[in-house]
Amino acid sequence: MTAGTATFLEPAKRRGTGNVAVALLLPIALVNAVGFIWPILNLAGLSIREALPGGGIGENFTAANWSGLLGDGFYIDLIVNSLVVSLTITLLTLLVSYPIALYLHRATGAWKSFLTVLVISPLLTSAVVRTYGWIALLSDTGPVVKAMTALGIPAPRLMFNTTGVVIGLTEILMPYMILALMAGFGRLDPRVEEAASTLGARPFAVFRRVVLPLTAPGIALGCLLCFVLAVSSFITPKLMGGGRVFLLATEIYDQAIVTLNWPLAATLSVLVLVIFGAALVLYSRAMRLLEQG
């Protein structure tokens, strides 16, 4: 083959490779368009439709849903409370899960496999069942309150309030946080910790200056995952909140099923998607800073 022929065939090869790539990507692109993009666009369109009495959806487009949402003190408090509760749950889940994930990362052999199975096993049980288990534990007649009373400790109310929701969701989200942390602990090399200790660093200094920076990607991933799950969680806040804890997910349910105000429910759903997008942007920037650092 001459040099001129090779030069002539090169664009054809590139076109053939491009066609194959398009053919391979087309099915998943169609699935995403039908199963993800189209429903989101439909939801966004529904959020600017007028709500008719009795649960009807009007034909006219209006910005009243958005203006009413952003101008109503109840919904502003609802958004702020949802963000605060979700961030609190994320932080508590991280604090409880980090030592477990770190221990699992350092474990070896059959012991590590056994502990990993224990961590994953709660995911095999429905969140509804686990929530009812927490209701039985934290109720006024449950073992937790009885034990505190027997010890002479004033027992606070642990059910049908934000405290119960935070406790329940923290435990429910722990497996997700632990698995995400372990997935991000790949850069943590025990030899680096040993080198820092050999150079005279105390255990806390080793953790602060070696372990924590190397495990930061796992922390960021786990926090993103748990925050998104906490914001969108419905079952646990509905059951353990007893209708007294108002969050975005529970309000969407009430507007769609109880009040039958579908446009407002769609508006709140789009707002949740915006929050998810903002969380992804923050996660991307955090990962970029970690890679640069």
Rank of each mutant, 00 (worst) to 15 (best):
T7G: 11
L9V: 08
R14W: 13
R14K: 08
R15Q: 07
G16C: 07
T17A: 11
A23W: 14
L24K: 03
L25E: 03
P27M: 08
P27W: 14
I28Y: 11
L30Y: 08
V31I: 10
V31A: 09
N32K: 06
A33G: 05
A33K: 01
W38S: 00
I40R: 00
L41G: 04
L41F: 13
L46W: 00
I48K: 00
R49T: 05
E50F: 00
A51K: 00
P53C: 02
G58T: 03
F61A: 07
A63V: 12
N65Y: 02
S67G: 05
S67N: 09
L70F: 15
G73N: 10
F74Y: 14
Y75K: 04
D77V: 04
L78M: 08
L78G: 10
L78P: 10
I79M: 14
V80L: 14
S82L: 11
S86N: 12
S86E: 09
T88W: 09
I89N: 10
L94N: 03
V96C: 11
Y98S: 12
Y98V: 08
I100T: 12
H105W: 14
R106S: 08
K112Q: 15
F114H: 01
L115M: 14
V117M: 13
V119N: 06
V119I: 12
V119H: 07
P122L: 08
L124F: 15
T125V: 13
A127W: 08
I135N: 02
A136T: 06
L138Q: 05
L138P: 14
G142D: 05
A155I: 00
M159H: 03
N161C: 04
T162H: 00
T162F: 00
T163I: 12
V166R: 04
L169R: 08
T170N: 05
I172V: 15
M174Q: 12
I178L: 13
L179Q: 09
A180W: 11
L181Y: 11
L188E: 14
D189F: 10
R191Y: 09
V192W: 03
E193N: 05
A196S: 13
T198H: 03
T198I: 04
T198W: 01
F204H: 12
A205L: 11
V206K: 08
F207A: 10
R208C: 08
R208K: 09
R208F: 05
R209P: 01
V211T: 10
L212F: 14
P213M: 02
G218K: 07
I219Y: 04
I219A: 15
G222C: 09
L224K: 06
V228H: 05
V231E: 06
S232M: 06
S233L: 05
S233R: 06
F234S: 03
I235Y: 04
P237T: 01
L239S: 04
M240P: 12
G243D: 03
V245D: 01
L247F: 09
L248F: 03
L248Y: 02
I252N: 01
Y253I: 00
Y253D: 10
D254S: 13
Q255D: 02
Q255R: 12
I257E: 07
W262P: 00
A266G: 04
S269Y: 03
V270K: 02
L271N: 06
V272M: 15
G277C: 10
G277L: 12
A278M: 13
L280H: 11
A286S: 12
A286C: 13
M287L: 14
M287V: 02
